[in-house]
Design a protein around this nucleic acid. Structure first.
Lengths: 112, 112
DNA sequence: GTCGTATTTCTACATTGTAGATAACCGGAG
DNA sequence: CTCCGGTTATCTACAATGTAGAAATACGAC
């Protein structure tokens, strides 16, 4: 049943980046936020295709900037977390919390 | 760079089930553990193919039971979390923690 | 109109997620 | 020995997600 029932690992990361960025969430800043927080590199293509899929599922929405500010380059596409996306995030958090319940961080590490 | 660098969402769930089950981790019990904790149904095929992939990556190992106890049916294949698997689990936990740092659960829910 | 810069879009492919049907194995009943 | 019901694992197939990088678009400055 591979429907949009559950968030993938990277989808969750992208949604969380959106939460942090608030009004300033577009491709580049989202990418930077992920790289800084998760300490890993991400290609810009990875970010956008994930965002597109999340939008298709109704978890985020996007809007092109009117660009009132004087700056160069192509129009920005701002992304926003939709209520449905927030619910998915919450469900993911709960599932993981349930899967971890009763475990100490160190009990995951067997003595080799 | 789609290498085994990061855990997928379901892979993480399966590994956590292993931690809980300890010595009693084989297909059926793993499936049950996930269904009870995550409150979702999972096919047995989903469980095994994920376990096979985790084993191929060295995150878990498996061993067929000698079946000293008197019971019917095919031999059980017991799974065990390997140190590398524990490390992956820890890395996933940290990434998510970093992505969530500074967020209250309710700040994920916009007031729409 | 050309140029450099900022940003998005497109294309392609690898990995992971998922289900269901089928096979293997066991002990007991006939 | 053969069939049976019960327990568990394997196989096959396909959909969804993860990921990268090149190409295209748009803007202001000159």
């Amino acid at each position: 049943m591979p429907k949009g029932d559950f968030l993938g690992a990277f989808e969750e990361i992208v949604l969380l980046a959106l939460v942090h960025l608030g009004d300033d969430a577009y491709g580049m800043t989202i990418r930077r936020e992920i790289e800084e927080r998760a300490k890993r590199t991400v290609s810009i293509g990875a970010v956008y295709s994930t965002l597109d899929r999340l939008e298709a599922k109704g978890l985020v929405s996007s809007l092109y900037a009117n660009g009132s500010e004087a700056r160069r380059g192509r129009a920005r596409r701002y992304f926003k977390l939709e209520p449905e996306g927030a619910r998915s995030l919450e469900r993911s958090r709960e599932i993981l919390a349930n899967m971890r319940r009763g475990l100490e961080p160190e009990s995951e590490l067997p003595g080799s």
